[in-house]
Design a protein around this nucleic acid. Structure first.
Length: 269
DNA sequence: GACAACCTGACC
DNA sequence: GGTCAGGTTGTC
């Protein structure tokens, strides 16, 4: 589920609830979701204080006391929701953190997400984090043009987290529509103007999605359990056969890079 | 590159 | 019964 705007929204909604809190106890109900093993995971977290929340690509990071950090990758259906006293757990809650004030539930219908502990000072050595590409909201237009100097299809390239960290299926399709570029266009065939336009579109789409608190297409919710609203602004994603907002041509659906792909066959060349 | 795997559920 | 699903990884 969550791509960059959703993880950013989770981070922002949870920061005031979690920063300064002490973890009193951890219940791991589905052992395969955590690393290292559940006993170590729980005992290391017990007594730790949450100092700050960060985001890198689609990963949520928690800075803890004692040079510890937790990493959460939500994959497709992970949710992290703060519960006030008496508030019921979400369905599919697999891990429950008991804090000095309130509880924090990790729920995950498809069980693909992962929670991990890692020393905060050595995050640059983490096997996944260390390979992530730059943040799309921080990269310069010139550096972005450099990323496009490969003969891969645009959709493959933009989904590759080692090239750019944070875009997923929704925001790649929306960005390519915004820029008027076909998902199968080779990245190194763009003119400088087209490359600049794509850079602008990615920034615009992600910023607007964050402002609207993410896209709730299926079961994404923020740290309060609330849905986002950017799905109402999607131009192509999940709009197969509906008229293109720009030219009225029915939106096409194909498979590119193994993912369902929506685009306007007329506007996106 | 394409495809299966990891899971559960929604929808036709 | 089949298809599809905000992701990543491993195997041809």
């Amino acid at each position: 589920m969550p791509e960059l705007p959703e993880v950013e929204t989770i981070k922002r909604t949870l920061t005031p609830k979690l920063v300064g809190r002490e973890i009193k106890d951890v219940q791991v109900r589905l052992e395969k979701l955590v690393r290292p093993d559940p006993r170590t995971f729980a005992s290391q977290l017990k007594g730790a204080q949450i100092k700050a929340l960060r985001r890198r690509g689609k990963v949520l990071l928690g800075k803890l006391s004692q040079d510890q950090a937790f990493l959460i990758h939500f994959r497709l259906t992970g949710q992290l929701v703060f519960l006030s006293p008496g508030q019921p757990e979400p369905a599919y809650t697999h891990i429950l953190f008991h804090l000095d004030q309130g509880r924090l539930a990790y729920a995950d219908l498809r069980q693909f997400g992962r929670l991990e502990l890692w020393p905060w000072s050595r995050l640059d050595e983490h096997p996944f984090l260390s390979r992530l590409g730059p943040e799309p909201l921080e990269i310069s237009t010139d550096a972005f043009k450099g990323l496009l100097q490969r003969s891969r299809r645009l959709k493959d390239l933009l989904l590759d987290q080692e090239i750019l960290a944070g875009l997923g299926n929704i925001y790649v399709d929306e960005s390519l529509f915004c820029a008027g570029l076909s998902p199968t266009r080779k990245a190194n065939t763009l003119s400088p103007e087209q490359a600049h336009r794509l850079w602008l579109c990615i920034r615009k789409i992600l910023s607007e999605a964050i402002a609207l608190r993410g896209s709730s297409v299926r079961n994404y919710v923020d740290g309060h359990g609330q849905s986002g609203r950017f799905q109402e602004r999607h131009q192509v994603y999940r709009r197969r056969d509906k008229p293109c907002p720009r030219c009225g041509t029915p939106i096409a659906y194909t498979r590119v890079a193994g993912r369902g792909t929506y685009f306007c066959p007329r506007c996106q060349g």
